[in-house]
Amino acid sequence: MGILEINDVTLRFGGVVALDKVSYEVKKGEIFSLIGPNGAGKTSMLNCISGLYKPSSGSVCFNGEEITHFKPHKRAALGIARAFQNIELFPHLSVLDNLMLGRHVRMKTGILSGGLYWGKAQKEEVLHRQKVEEVIDFLEIEHIRDTPVGRLAYGLQKRVEVGRALALEPEILLLDEPMAGMNSEEKEDMARYIIDIHEEMETTIILIEHDMGVVMDLSDHIAVLDFGKLIGYGTPYEIQNNQKVIDAYLGVENVG
């Protein structure tokens, strides 16, 4: 049994079928990539996993428990964290404050005790701050910890976006095009951080990425979507030699 099981997931928006009976599993501790042409349904799939979308039919199971009807915050509390393709940070808050927001589902004290910052609430704040400081050290962003996110270069903002998801201490980290818009040096840095997250934090990663070199180098298994349908599933070698996948990316020549 995988840590995540997708069973016949279908997602409809009116007459548009974004996902069509998609099934696969993600094994615990692997880097799993979702690829496909633009509009294939990749982000819609991540939205079904994180709870932003509810499938029209089918099921999503996490650690053997069906979570199809769980709200996003409950899935986050279970250990599913998300970094978005379009940066969803608070630009006027510091890096540190943005990362602290990633701890919100782990906080147990109530509004009153938290507002007074006394006793149990104070101790909890210290513990959460320690976890965030570990993420700051891990991602090598100590020098910008007090800088408002809106002042940062794009590549650093993407790193903070990943950091906020990491602050949740997830079992599964969903990364939606973490290297989009980056230069080659920034891509190399992000690839290194993804490997480190996987190996040092033993985090299962589901990755959407258009750079096929990165996908083939990092992934243990790959699922390929095209017009909402699963057309390929396997190891990087198997995907590279899958004719349906080749046709989807390169097109099929019409002869005659």
Rank of each mutant, 00 (worst) to 15 (best):
G2W: 09
N7S: 15
L11I: 10
R12D: 06
R12C: 12
F13R: 05
V16G: 06
V16E: 09
D20E: 15
D20P: 13
V22Y: 12
S23P: 01
Y24G: 08
E25V: 04
K27H: 11
G29T: 05
E30M: 11
F32P: 02
I35Q: 05
I35R: 02
G36D: 00
P37W: 05
G39A: 02
G39S: 02
G41Y: 10
I49Q: 04
I49S: 08
G51L: 03
G51C: 09
K54N: 06
S59T: 15
V60H: 06
C61D: 01
C61E: 11
G64N: 07
G64I: 10
E66Q: 02
E66H: 01
H69W: 09
K71D: 14
H73C: 00
A83S: 15
F84N: 03
Q85M: 12
N86D: 12
I87A: 14
E88I: 09
E88C: 08
P91L: 10
L93Y: 14
L93W: 01
S94F: 04
H104I: 05
V105N: 14
K108G: 09
T109I: 00
Y117C: 12
W118T: 04
G119V: 09
K120E: 15
Q122P: 00
E124D: 15
E124C: 07
V126N: 00
V126W: 02
H128S: 14
H128W: 03
Q130S: 13
Q130D: 12
V132L: 05
E134P: 00
V135K: 01
F138I: 11
F138P: 13
L139D: 15
L139H: 10
R145K: 15
R145E: 12
D146V: 04
V149M: 08
G150C: 08
R151G: 03
A153G: 14
Y154L: 01
K158H: 07
K158N: 14
R159F: 00
G163I: 13
A167L: 06
E171V: 01
I172E: 12
I172F: 08
L173F: 06
L173P: 03
L174Q: 10
L174C: 03
G181S: 02
G181V: 11
M182D: 01
K187I: 15
E188K: 08
A191V: 13
I194E: 15
D196M: 07
D196S: 11
I197F: 12
H198K: 10
E199G: 05
E199T: 12
E200G: 00
E202H: 14
T203I: 13
T204C: 04
T204D: 10
I205V: 15
I206D: 04
L207R: 06
E209W: 01
D211I: 00
M212V: 05
G213Q: 06
G213N: 11
V214L: 13
V215M: 07
V215I: 07
V215G: 12
M216W: 06
M216S: 10
L218W: 08
A223Y: 03
A223H: 08
V224N: 08
L225K: 00
L225T: 01
F227V: 06
G228F: 00
Y233L: 14
G234C: 01
E238D: 15
I239Y: 05
I239N: 04
Q240S: 13
N242W: 04
V245W: 03
V245G: 11
V245M: 11
D247M: 04
Y249D: 03
Y249C: 07
